[in-house]
Design a protein around this nucleic acid. Structure first.
Lengths: 218, 218, 218, 218
DNA sequence: CATGAATGAGGTTTCATTCAT
DNA sequence: TATGAATGAAACCTCATTCAT
């Protein structure tokens, strides 16, 4: 486990020349490839560089250390998933609660499952980085989006809003992870999609109550 | 990640003499201690031996390699949790579905949360071992116990039984993990306990139907 | 230690255009700055170039390799000190021995102590260059100047002149170095100045004898 | 330059088995050998181990890092010199000032000059360690011994005792160093021995005064 | 001329594992 | 059986230097 401390994790330089951009992409791709067919301990900076067709030195011009490379790769993935969920939240605004949950959960699962191999590989490297830090990075944004969306539900209002959302998110992410790590078959993925929707819908229903009617009329 | 392939993972000898038992225990305890205050990368065989008060040579007499040590430690933990759940299942036989779920989920959460630090540490070493293998080890037994218990519910019968149980288990384990890895405070743990029960209860209710009445009488 | 062997140590081109002169100065200054706040192992060509506001490539246009840069920086410093001593020698011609020594030693100490931080930093890089070569560079000139001056002393003539001068110089340089490297405080520097004069004066007196009187008259 | 900071510099373990003692000695000797025929930058831990006929790993069992190895080598040398001087001080107690100085200076020069090659090599590695720290290590003890000895001189008492001793020591050490680094020939060494005695004697005489007579009798 | 991306040998250090004592 | 010294492959990372743009 590599604890974050205060070290600079930021990539070292932003490529200005075209050549650099190509290099950075190659490194990125190589990292994932190696992770896929080698596992965590084949993932060495030397090997990544080799696979990317550059020298180690070059790799270190862009990433100050191994963690920063892993961090970058992970971040890109998490951001993609976050964006997918946020987009789902946007689309689902104003719909009934059950529908909302369906849209969002499906967006999440689809994003995660698009490449189950990559998702799985990334779970493994996540363990070597600072857990809480990453959880925050991804969780915060997503939970905010969920909260905003849920307020627009016409048919329900949450009790213990904050914690309910946390649980909802933990259930989505955790259940998916468990299934993935168990080595899910495509069939299982399909089923998961359906059942996770059900799971989240029923939970949300359970922690909601009908909105207070406006004393309109009468 | 250390893939096991065909290597012998079994501990080398089962301690028969008292002296050995003490040694093994010390090694065991040392492993966890180091994990707790050092993180994954302080966890070296030498350090474990040192902390346990034995020589590395001795350690290797009981565990043929590092993985086998980690595997053993993890196994003990998982078995403890499994047993707790199984005991819960036993206790819950014949009760109404909601009650069943409550008992089982609480048993699981309590077992995991008894020492959140240890649970967290073990999540980290789990990443370095073979995921699916471990999932199986723990999952199989537990799911069997759940299945047996659920059949005794007087008020509900599951649809898609097998997959529902898988999802139930993934939700329990995954959600708990997510919360733990985010660095849960004691307060959050308490809330989790309550909400995870709710989550599982509502899901189980959703995938159940009232039992077909026996055409008794009439 | 980088032994020079046959490598070209001379700077590559002498700047004729103003732009070049500015560049060279910047590199020079940067080298010292880095040495001051980083120590020997932060002193990399890349860093020097960066701090100087030019590219590494440019640096290598003026200095064919790292040593040549260090050599140049050191040389400038040594020349400055040499010049100060030579000027002292010039001023002191014809004076009594004790006065001569006072003037010269003070000139030397003042030159070295003007920036104790820089002197210290340069001692460090000197170790990475060829010791004897540098000693010669500085020593020869200075000893010649000392010899010429001492011949004009009206009140004394040296025995074993050559070696006495060598010792005088070694004592001046060595003692000063020892004090500096010990991390001299300003107060110590003041004291050193006084005592080094005393030291050299008494030594010179001890190795001198009254001049043979010219058989003038009688 | 490797600054000391707070890192453990102490050797890692004291050899208990005979085998270890042999190993440690071999490493020690190898370090010096490499320094002698290679210079500072051939001095790598790998090369030292190789020359010592052990593996790098073994080296690191005894020295936690490169500096600690250098530090140890240097320390042994400095201690040897210190001891020689202290022994000289002991022997010289009660003698007249000039004799005292002669004994001590010769003890120092002889110790340093016993192996000029080694002394020179060590000057070079000293630059890569923390200057002041080392100066203290050696200087303190020696100055204390000098002070104690000088108090027993029957024919002189020092003015500004503390600073005079500091200067005396700096002159001894510094002058010797200068001569050595200039690549002294055996002949020069002989001369240095004589002249350094003279130098120190005349300085000490200059900063002394006859002792106040006890108003005994008359 | 200047730039700065790329190189890659080589440095320090760790650590699972063995085996003579 | 226990010990712990020894091993050495392999990891991470730096930096002097080059050369296409």
């Amino acid at each position: 486990m590599i604890r974050n401390a205060q070290t600079a994790f930021e990539p070292r330089k932003t490529p200005v020349q075209t050549r650099s951009a190509v290099t950075v992409d190659a490194i990125f791709e190589a990292t994932i490839q190696i992770l896929l067919d080698g596992g965590t301990d084949r993932l060495t900076t030397t090997r990544v560089a080799e696979r990317a067709g550059v020298s180690v030195g070059t790799l270190y011009q862009y990433y100050p250390n191994k963690q920063s490379l892993l961090f970058a790769v992970l971040t890109v993935h998490l951001d993609k998933v976050s964006k997918a969920v946020e987009a789902g939240c946007e689309r689902a605004r104003g719909r009934p609660l059950a529908e909302m949950v369906k849209i969002v959960v499906e967006a999440f699962v689809d994003a995660k499952m698009e490449r189950t191999d990559i998702s799985n590989a990334l779970y493994r490297i996540a363990a070597d980085l600072d857990g809480p830090a990453l959880a925050k990075r991804m969780g915060q944004r997503t939970r905010a989006a969920l909260a905003a969306m849920l307020k627009t539900a016409p048919d329900a209002v949450l009790r213990q809003e904050k914690f309910a959302i946390q649980t909802l998110f933990a259930a989505m992410a955790g259940t998916t992870r468990s299934v993935l790590e168990a080595g899910a078959s495509p069939a299982m993925v399909r089923d998961l999609r359906v059942h996770l929707v059900l799971l989240c819908q029923s939970y949300m229903a359970a922690v909601s109550q009908p909105p207070r009617r406006h004393p309109s009329g009468a």
